[in-house]
Amino acid sequence: MDQPSHALLEFVNVRKAFASTVTEDSAVDVAVDGVSCGIAAGSFVALVGASGSGKSTLLKTVNRLGDPDSGQVLLAGDNVQDAAPAMLRRRIGYVFQGVGLFPHMNVADNIGIGPRLSGTRASDGRIAELLELVELDGSYAGRMPHELSGGQRQRIGVARALAGNPQLLLMDEPFGALDPLTRDGLGKRVRALHGQLNLTTMMVTHDMAEALLLADRILVMEKGRIVADETPRSLLKGAGGPIAQAMVAVPREQAAALAQMAQLDGPA
């Protein structure tokens, strides 16, 4: 599934290893083991895999939070390593599980940090607009992070990532710490924003159900390699190989079990 011609983002034989902390004998831990793939502009790609399979490491090579040992990452045709990290990151939205709101800044200042770094200032109207994108009203602008719930905090995290009008949105288990209801609502909201703002989105998750419901392309990682690259539809039809299918089996069996329970009890 090579789409190099209209890929916004392209990984070319990306490899990264960490000095192993587990074994002493100078062994290395290959986190990403020669990944090549293109991400088309406008697509919503989910990167799924077991914990430790290298998803975060791969994602961070894009905004240079961790450079690869070898290989290249091309953004709109240019090697990201040719750009200064700070400049590159201001063009890329990044949302992660820890959120990382600046605790000493209020919501408006958190959201406006990107423009401020570039020497401009987000107007009150712009802040209100960004808050509205994540379904919060303007009164939140003056609050401090510690006054917000986990879900509200991550909404601010998303608004902050969108403040610089990025083309590309990277998300690393963005909803991992949220309760299921909040998680579902925010997931749908992000998917809507993806379409509304013409984003290209790459989302890391270990939850196959979430990936199936939100993404239009799913990459499955295992031990640093991409072992499946399918649409949700084809995955549900049984494509992608045993590792991918084992992951799909979990939500499928859960759904079946739930449906069965509903049938047995009859309508309430």
């Binding site: 590159l88 992660f96 820890g98 600046f102 990107g114 770094l117």
Partner: peptide, 21 residues
């Protein structure tokens, strides 16, 4: 908080901006 420091990098702060802000 490691998350806050990661966010400082991710939003595009230079080293000096990170220290200062």
């Amino acid at each position: 908080d490691a998350g806050v420091l990661e966010a400082a990098d991710a939003v595009g702060m230079t080293r000096w901006q990170k220290l200062q802000l």
